[in-house]
Simulated assay, not measured.
Amino acid sequence: MTNPPVPPFTRESAVEKVRLAEDGWNSRDPQRVSLAYTPDSRWRNRAEFVNGRAEIVDFLTRKWTRELDYRLIKELWAFEGNHIAVRFAYECHDDSGNWYRSYGNENWEFDENGLMRVRLACINDKPIQESERAYHWPLGRRPDDHAGLSDLGF
């Protein structure tokens, strides 16, 4: 299975890869998202370790059950060869209506087919008021004309 763009990445293809990842996560479809990763992909997400697509699906199912109205923006930070570093921020709320903006960084490693085999994520959560939300697009893909992280000052 090939998942273009594939390494080695150029600035253009790295930006495209980041946007495709953002779009996938904004679908909130764990099965769809898992297909962007190798069958034996390894993750560190905060202090949780996830191995393989089945665990990715389980992890994302749990995540999006408790992180409601999830909306994410990713931005390329750096790239070289088959590695990409991104920064991101997402907004969501819990079942009690408490809103959060979570900020983080990810380091990615890809195989020759463009599937991610390693994902290392560090994330910090900030409680926000609903009035402080910055992501107001309908659930799903972020519109092309919506501000990115740098534009929002995040």
Rank of each mutant, 00 (worst) to 15 (best):
N3A: 00
P4A: 01
P5L: 06
P5H: 03
P7V: 05
P8V: 00
T10Y: 15
T10L: 15
T10K: 13
R11C: 02
V15C: 07
K17I: 00
R19Q: 05
E22V: 02
D23R: 11
D23K: 14
G24V: 01
S27P: 11
R28T: 04
D29Y: 02
D29V: 05
P30K: 13
V33I: 11
S34P: 11
S34F: 14
S34C: 05
S41K: 05
S41G: 15
R42Q: 11
R44F: 06
G52V: 09
R53W: 09
D58T: 08
R62G: 00
R62S: 02
T65G: 08
E67T: 01
D69S: 02
Y70L: 10
R71S: 10
W77T: 05
N82E: 12
I84E: 00
V86I: 01
A89L: 14
E91I: 14
W99K: 02
W99S: 03
Y103T: 07
Y103A: 02
E106S: 11
E109C: 03
N113K: 11
N113I: 06
R117T: 08
R117F: 14
V118M: 09
R119H: 06
I123E: 01
I128V: 14
E130C: 15
A134I: 12
A134E: 14
H136F: 07
H136M: 15
W137L: 03
P138D: 04
L139H: 12
R142T: 00
D144H: 05
H146A: 10
L152K: 10
